[in-house]
Each structure stands twice: as structure tokens, then as C-alpha cells.
């Protein structure tokens, strides 16, 4: 869907982005991860020509992005900013309908789409007539997301979309974000400096440093097959938690014991979820959790100890 080739951006003597190339497949969720000044935001903004590259080429949907006027290009790419970038002088409804307005949608279509999106994003229709300053931070960010999703653009660019939120709100919105069916179909490129966020939301991660991509791969590849010390050190601090997030229940399914007597009730956890998710449920009095394989529909009942044993086993096979 997105192809980037030998992309560079030079500011004076500084190479902000230094000859990078990568591809994002349709429906992929690529996270550009790195510290401040690593070139991740510059890279993102070159994708919708907010910044023009010094050298290199970009194709979106097979088309060179310089082929059309930047305004027209941008109308078909969703964009979410860290500080939401909502127009303070527009109501929520007006903010959301900016792009449909630019694309000259008819009113009926716009209205239907608004209501569809509000529901999905857990926003009340009462908010439509409010101004951004009257909303909470979480609501503002949801509205920002709604604005970017409004026209069903196939590509979504997100610049630290949850960076300005407090921890609790962030976790909540990240959860919703993962569950949003709209996003499953989209090709997303997201910038963040938050390692957890990257591992939580990305199915591919590109770690950047000094304008270059140090390593790009799935979360598990970065964790278990780091190509160099930079990647290793970058992930070292929160390694255990990241690993638990990177490994799905499906990955360790074979080493979990089969169940004997299952309780009749209770909703099982899908094996597409990470071990971390399963552990999250094992809090307080809950000693066991029911899991259900996404492939075979087989159900298992496991304890914390069993999960950790399976995790250790998996880790050993990877590093062996």
C-alpha cells in the first residue's frame, strides 16, 4: 500500500531522515518508534507531503504521491495529531465534517456517517454542538480520530495520537482503538516514542535512530532477534512486559495443559490476545482463566504458573 524508497530529508547540515526505504502492506499497522529527533515524525509528514523530501520517492496505492496536488492527496489520507488539532472555532460536528465538505459529500451521507462513527467511538450525539474546549482530553482525541476516519480514507497517519493523554485515559482509548473494526482494514502508520504503545498497537515496528531505520519487524522479531545492541538496549528496560505483550496465547498454546473439567459459564479469552492480556485477567481472586483457540475452538483452563511456564518454554525455543 505504501512504498518508500531512498527517502531523505536534510535540514542544513543535519540529515533528519537518512536514505530510508520500507513498505507497508495493506491493512498493516506500522509503528515508527524512537526517541525525539530520530526522524520518525519527519518521515510520517513526508507521507502526506506536509514536508517535502530532499530525495527519494513515495508511492501510495501504487501511485507516486507527487503526481497530484498535495491538497488532493491529503484529502484521501487520514491524519491524527498529538494535540488533536481540532479547530477551536468549529463545533464537533463542523470539525468532523471538514473533509466531507472539501470532498463535497451530500448532507445525508455525511449525517449517516457521523452517527455511525460516533457510536463506534463511544461519543454521545450531544457533543456534536459543543466546541472542542468544552470536551475532555479523551473526547477531544476521539473526535480527532473521528475526523480522520470520516471519509473512509484507506490510509491513516497518526502522530503520537495518545501522547497528550493521561495514563488511564490513554490505556482506555488504546483498548478501544484496537477493537475498532474500522481500523482493521486500514493501512496505518503511527509515530510514537512509547515502547509499550508500539508493542500494544503495532503489528510491525520500525525502530529509528539518527534518521535511519535500525530494525523493522514484528514485535517478537525485535524482542527475540534484535539485530544490534541499539535495539537490544532500547527494549531492555521493559523487556519482560514487552515480551509478554509480544507473545500471543496462540504462540504458547501447545505447551499449555489441556483442560479436564471445564466450568459451564464464563467468556473465554481469544488466543489472538497476548500473554500479558491473560495475566491482566488473573488478578485478585481469579486463579484460573479460560482460553479458546481461534483456530480449533479448543478451550483450555490455565493458571498464572502454567502461563509463565509456557512463556519460559517458548522463550527458550526462540533463543536456542
Amino acid at each position: 500500500m505504501i512504498r518508500v524508497q531512498n527517502l531523505s530529508k536534510q535540514y542544513g547540515q543535519v540529515m533528519a531522515v537518512d536514505n530510508i526505504s520500507f513498505e507497508v502492506a495493506e491493512g498493516d499497522n506500522l509503528i515508527l518508534l524512537g526517541t525525539s529527533g530520530c526522524g520518525k515524525t519527519t518521515t510520517l509528514k513526508m507521507l502526506n507531503r506536509l514536508i517535502e523530501p530532499t530525495a527519494g520517492k513515495i508511492w501510495i496505492g501504487g501511485e507516486d504521491i507527487t503526481a497530484q496536488k498535495p491538497e488532493l492527496l491529503r484529502r484521501n489520507i487520514g491524519y491524527v495529531l498529538q494535540n488533536n488539532g481540532l479547530f477551536p472555532h468549529y463545533t464537533v460536528a463542523e470539525n468532523i465534517t471538514i473533509v466531507p465538505g472539501l470532498l463535497k459529500w451530500d448532507k445525508e451521507k455525511t449525517r449517516n456517517r457521523i452517527h455511525e462513527l460516533l457510536q463506534k467511538l463511544h461519543l454521545s450525539t450531544d457533543l456534536l454542538t459543543k466546541y472542542p474546549s468544552q470536551l475532555s482530553g479523551g473526547q477531544q482525541q476521539r473526535v480527532g480520530l473521528a475526523r480522520a476516519l470520516m471519509t473512509n480514507a484507506p490510509v491513516l497517519l497518526m502522530d503520537e495520537p495518545f501522547g497528550a493523554l493521561d495514563n488511564i485515559t490513554r490505556t482506555k482509548i488504546q483498548e478501544e482503538f484496537k477493537e475498532l473494526d474500522e481500523l482493521q482494514r486500514k493501512t496505518i502508520v503511527m509515530v510514537t516514542h512509547d515502547v509499550h504503545e508500539a508493542f500494544e498497537l503495532g503489528n510491525r515496528i520500525a525502530i529509528m535512530d539518527k534518521g535511519q531505520i535500525v530494525q523493522m519487524g514484528t514485535p517478537a522479531q525485535l524482542l527475540f532477534k534484535p539485530e544490534n545492541d541499539f535495539v537490544r538496549n532500547f527494549l531492555k528496560a521493559q523487556r519482560l512486559q514487552l515480551e509478554l505483550k509480544a507473545i500471543t496465547l496462540h504462540d504458547v498454546w501447545y505447551s499449555l495443559p489441556s483442560a479436564h473439567d471445564l466450568p459451564d459459564s464464563g467468556l473465554p479469552l481469544n488466543t489472538n490476545e497476548s500473554i500479558w492480556q491473560a495475566i491482566q485477567k488473573l488478578k485478585g481472586d481469579v486463579k484460573q482463566i479460560m482460553l479458546k483457540s481461534a483456530q480449533t475452538n479448543e478451550v483450555k483452563l490455565v493458571t498464572f504458573e502454567q502461563l509463565m511456564a509456557a512463556y519460559n518454554h517458548y522463550q527458550n525455543t526462540l533463543t536456542a
Binding site: 491529503r74 495529531l81 488539532g85 479547530f87 477551536p88 472539501l102
Partner: peptide, 14 residues
């Protein structure tokens, strides 16, 4: 606010 201007630009306003 620069972020508002950036949002306007990114949404494809001329």
C-alpha cells in the same frame, strides 16, 4: 496554534 494549522493542511485545505 501551529497544530491547528497543521491539521488544516493535513486535511487537504488549500
Amino acid at each position: 496554534e501551529p497544530s491547528v494549522k497543521e491539521a488544516a493542511l493535513a486535511m487537504g485545505m488549500s
